[in-house]
Computed example of a mutant assay.
Amino acid sequence: MSDSKKVLICISWLTTGGTQIQTLNLIKSLIEKHYQVVVVCYFGEIPQMTRRYEKTGAKIVIGNLNEEENLFKKSLHLYHLLHGVVRKEKPNIVHVQYMAPGAIPILLLRTMGIKNIIVTLHTAADIYPSLKLIHFLQKHCVRAFTCITLLAEKSFFGNAQLYTTKTQLDKRNHFTIYNSLSEHFKISNTPKTFNTTITLGVVSRMERIKGMDLIIDAFALIKKRFPSTRLMVVGDGYSSVKDNMRKQAIELNLNESIQWTGRQPIEELPEIYKQMDIVLIPSRSEGFGLTAIEAMSQGCVVVASNIGGLPEIIKDGVNGLLHQTENIKDIAEKTNYLIENPDVMKQMSEKAIEAVKQYSIEKYTELFGDLYRKLV
């Protein structure tokens, strides 16, 4: 295969987060377009995820660098890692997955003579104290920035535009390409039929930033009004959050109405979503909202926090409902409204299935394939 079709993807960690899942989707899309893909991971891995990456046909290089080193040592070790991979693989395009650690990988790659650098920004700009460095990179180092939401793009660059196959790179070097469903999610053909026993679901890491500490109290309010309601909790994470949720459930006599499944393989998630009617996403921060599109693809109605990228996916009152962030009472009230109105739920289920088609892996593959083709 020609070196002009070789891509190097740079990522900090190979774990089971949303960024890693989307990077996996990107790799599959590129390989489908006949690119040769090499992935370099700076710090560490979960072997299960590395094996999934390798199954795509990509070559994986794990650096095992020490993230706790001081900036100079970390930069030096990262330089040697990237330089060795670049010298051996001679990539035509390098795609950096999020700015971590900072801009160091981008600046190092530019000093190595790499001109075709794509950077994907997975968050909004509010985590950065200043945008001067981003704008320097935009002007001097990076051929194209892709953002995962219009909100994120606008926060970095002041304006935003969805990328299409008609977008010209010579006029603009930042755009939004939405994340996609994985290949395991086939979009449902029919809306859900809701009966009198409603199953609520959460699919998330057990972390405070994901609002998991709000779930049990909200469920208690919902169950007070609709005693037959059940809850499925899918995911794992910090033991402190998980243990506190279980403790709350026992204290409130809710544990018998809750199914704790732990973390599940992505291959199993479509069938799990089919067991849920309403999916709760009470996040305090959410770059995109992968759980939302996964749930919608199976006809679930989503009740989500009005934060981050979620309002771009959930059109309030149309294909789901948005609640005030960190407001347990509002979570319960929005959920109760749906349970009271099964006809409304069915309509929202229909709209959710229709809306989620724009996040298909096929569209994602088409857009990134077009972007890469223009860069090559």
Rank of each mutant, 00 (worst) to 15 (best):
K33Y: 07
H34F: 07
H34M: 03
H34R: 15
Q36M: 10
Q36V: 09
Q36E: 15
V37F: 04
V37N: 03
V37C: 11
V37Y: 02
V38Y: 07
V38P: 00
V38Q: 05
V39M: 12
V39I: 15
V39W: 02
V40E: 00
V40M: 04
V40T: 15
V40K: 04
V40W: 00
V40D: 00
C41V: 15
C41R: 09
C41N: 15
C41S: 06
C41F: 00
Y42Q: 07
Y42T: 02
F43Y: 14
F43P: 00
F43S: 02
F43K: 00
F43L: 09
G44V: 09
G44K: 15
G44C: 12
G44N: 07
E45G: 03
E45W: 05
E45L: 02
I46Y: 04
I46T: 09
I46K: 04
I46C: 10
P47I: 03
P47G: 08
Q48P: 06
Q48S: 14
Q48F: 12
Q48I: 10
Q48T: 12
Q48K: 14
M49N: 00
M49D: 00
M49Y: 10
M49F: 12
M49C: 07
M49W: 04
M49Q: 14
T50M: 10
T50R: 14
R51Q: 13
R51D: 13
R51N: 12
R52G: 00
R52C: 05
Y53I: 07
Y53S: 03
Y53E: 05
E54K: 11
K55P: 01
K55Y: 08
K55V: 06
K55G: 05
K55I: 02
T56S: 09
T56H: 09
T56F: 10
T56K: 02
G57L: 07
G57A: 05
G57P: 09
G57R: 11
G57C: 09
A58I: 08
A58S: 13
A58M: 10
K59V: 03
K59F: 06
K59E: 08
K59L: 07
K59I: 05
K59R: 12
K59S: 11
I60Y: 06
I60W: 05
I60Q: 04
I60C: 03
I60S: 08
V61F: 09
V61P: 06
V61M: 02
V61Y: 14
V61G: 08
V61S: 09
I62Q: 11
I62R: 07
I62G: 00
G63F: 01
G63Q: 01
G63V: 00
G63T: 08
G63A: 04
G63C: 04
N64Q: 14
N64T: 06
N64K: 15
L65F: 02
L65T: 00
N66Y: 10
N66H: 11
N66D: 15
N66G: 02
E67F: 14
E67Q: 13
E67W: 15
E67H: 12
E67T: 10
E68D: 13
E68K: 15
E68A: 10
E68T: 13
E68Y: 12
E69Y: 01
E69W: 04
E69H: 10
E69G: 01
E69R: 10
N70E: 12
N70A: 11
N70V: 02
N70G: 13
N70K: 13
L71C: 01
L71K: 01
L71S: 06
F72V: 13
F72R: 07
K73C: 11
K73G: 11
K73M: 13
K74R: 14
K74F: 08
K74A: 07
